[in-house]
Design a protein around this nucleic acid. Sequence first.
DNA 1: GTCGTTGCAAAGCATTTGCAAGACT
DNA 2: AGTCTTGCAAATGCTTTGCAACGAC
Lengths: 172, 172
Amino acid sequence: MRQTAIRNAFEAFLKRRALKLTTQRRRIFDRAFETHEHFSAERLYRWLVDEPGTRVSRATVYRTLGLLVEGEFMHSLDAGRGELVYEHTAGHQHHDHMVCLSCGKIEEFVDPMIEELQLAACVRKGFELVDHDLRLLGYCKACRRTRSAMGTPAADETARAATPEEAPSAGE
Amino acid sequence: MRQTAIRNAFEAFLKRRALKLTTQRRRIFDRAFETHEHFSAERLYRWLVDEPGTRVSRATVYRTLGLLVEGEFMHSLDAGRGELVYEHTAGHQHHDHMVCLSCGKIEEFVDPMIEELQLAACVRKGFELVDHDLRLLGYCKACRRTRSAMGTPAADETARAATPEEAPSAGE
DNA sequence: GTCGTTGCAAAGCATTTGCAAGACT
DNA sequence: AGTCTTGCAAATGCTTTGCAACGAC
């Protein structure tokens, strides 16, 4: 399995922090890396509960996830719902997200030019860039289709401020 | 007062939604627009409590803030701490943010080129862009200075989650 | 054996909501 | 007068934490 390298990195990380490699941590780590999609802490917890293996508590899932983020093995992102979603930072280096306001799906994309411009903007402001988070909110291809098929003119307002009935203009 | 225009827009918005212009809503609106910085719901609530005027409950602050966001009078953004911060959308159209991981300060910036590239990326993916949120995380000029003066090495990951206990034996 | 860890349940937080009293239009 | 609103407090939903039992090193 090609996960050996990353697992070793994790074990090294634990060792460096004088933390122990417990059964739970291993299971959480493995399950999290097994998934190449975004998941919430709760989702991961459910997987661990439903699938066979050592019992793991929700608290430990949260704790370990936090550890993984600290160790840069995972990245967390707020997709707008009340919970954080996680994704591992294994192969793919960095990417930004398109979050569908309708189905919640998260697509990834990268644009080197955008990254570069961000850096340039930081230099201009004397800001030391550590990380960034770019989320494009809208409707994915599938939902667009559905919406137009349903004759939805523009999102219903419950979907956020997608279509306020006006745009206040301030005199400035 | 030059807030008349925007206040009128707010009143018009309420009218259109068959909502009433209550003393509380007016006070919340005014106080929120009086501030040209980012603030949390709690902060706004504190201001309203501390400053003289009609009593306003926390619940109403939240409710009204939600209204203001729906009406596009305010914009909310998750600055990484557990709470949303708000900013009015009066004159300045749209901008992105640089959030200082050390002092929490939020600087604004705009880069038309980035905006354009975002749109292009969406077109490529068949994604209908509604809104976006770009946050650059790092250290502001002031904090950079402080940090380097203190001999703080490059950004360590513990800075984000407000984890009080530092990694003691990590690589320093 | 020693600490770090776990699980549980309770606690925390920011935010939301049910409901009865109260205030705009 | 009739609704929309408010305030309160309880509820929510995600996440964190205290603590005693437990397990890795």
